[in-house]
Design a protein around this nucleic acid. Structure first.
Lengths: 213, 213
DNA sequence: CAAAATGCGTTACCGCTAGTAACACACCTG
DNA sequence: CAGGTGTGTTACTAGCGGTAACGCATTTTG
């Protein structure tokens, strides 16, 4: 059985690749992003060199593994951002989508945010290069969206990019903290962040007895 | 020479520790945060076990190394945040202080933000634990500051903490991106971020031909 | 049908890392 | 002079990412 040459011929490579990715995912979800290639190979029932033949190096495997989830998350975020509703509603929906995702699969989230820490050992000067590529992609996508939809006057492209990365960073940091401490329900966090983006920081009054000088 | 027992008795330990930290700093600034204990020991002119006697493990050394810069940065940020000026000016001064610091010493910044990646190999469930402790500290400090100074009505503590972490995350992400791509002068980045915090996102008009629905 | 080429899998290794055990020398103290 | 105490060393472990070299089955070719 299973000795049919046609199916084996073309599907073995891709199927094996999918199987390996699934095994890798299981291990990463269990052991965190520090999972070793040995452990992944063992989980897949094979040995290390096969992994390296398929993915080149650890970074390659992690990149392949990240892309699945990244694409899915980006798609749902785009949908929330693009929904037919008031701007504030859309912003809240997008924040909520992100937070729901990281809440549902915290291990995936953890992995996605730090996929290839020390992959390339460039001793150069490229500061920040280690930071999560997903966050950068999110920031760039949001920047494009803002620039397309909002009328920000002259220099709008630059402004949109600053805002894109800034807002994504805000969402990420707040989400990270919230996921760890769980100080309030998700809806409240969403509302607080939207308030911040809506200028409530500027509008708030100083505390009594503490004049601004 | 240098055989005086009094000085040797009490100062050797602390002095050695300072020397080791300075050597470690030199290596980390040269090789990045992935610097090995062997390299640090060699730079200090000694061998590994001495490092481990002084700092326990790599995380300990990194924590000791981080504290120096962290304290200095926190102090200047507090000063900027506390200056006698309008709120917007203070916010801009604080952002500018942070960006100036990371611009002046990008290697230090890179090290501070990711000090102990894989230090503890807890396979538990503490998502986000890997994230930079400095950012968390910044977020908490800013939260306290906001809660002390602003009148945010009921639930102000929770709101302040969300904002603290959110604003710090915004600053961090934008700074990281800016430092890598250098798309604009620092003053402009500061201004754009302050605009974002001042509600310009909410106030902006939709682009023509693209109604909100 | 035999022989060569090709792909999947293995074992065994390299150089590196963090971290440690065990030993050697100097010194101050009784 | 004996004995702790601290400072340093060498030599090691276990595990990591990654690779070279080989075994075996299957397919392709003469």
């Amino acid at each position: 059985m299973d000795t049919d040459p046609r199916t084996a011929q073309r599907s073995t490579a891709e199927r094996r690749r999918r199987e390996l990715l699934e095994a890798a995912e299981r291990v990463v979800l269990r052991d965190g992003p520090g999972a070793s290639m040995n452990a992944i190979a063992a989980e897949a029932g094979i040995t290390k060199p096969i992994l390296y033949r398929h993915f080149g190096d650890k970074g390659g495997l992690y990149r392949a593994l990240a892309q699945r989830h990244t694409d899915a998350l980006l798609e749902s975020l785009r949908a929330a951002l693009d929904a037919p509703a008031e701007r504030r509603e859309r912003v809240e929906a997008t924040l909520d989508t992100y937070l729901t995702a990281i809440e549902a699969h915290p291990q995936v989230y953890r992995f996605l945010m730090h996929p290839a820490e020390d992959a390339e050992t460039e001793q150069g000067f490229d500061v920040g290069h280690h930071s999560a590529p997903l966050l950068r992609r999110l920031g760039e996508e949001l920047a494009v969206f803002i620039e397309e939809r909002l009328d920000l006057g002259p220099g709008s492209e630059e402004l949109a990019r600053v805002w894109g990365h800034g807002i994504v960073g805000m969402m990420h940091a707040a989400g990270d903290w919230w996921l760890r401490e769980r100080p309030c329900p998700r809806e409240q966090l969403v509302s607080h962040l939207a308030d911040l983006l809506w200028g409530r920081l500027a509008a708030a009054a100083d505390r009594a007895g503490r004049p601004t000088f």
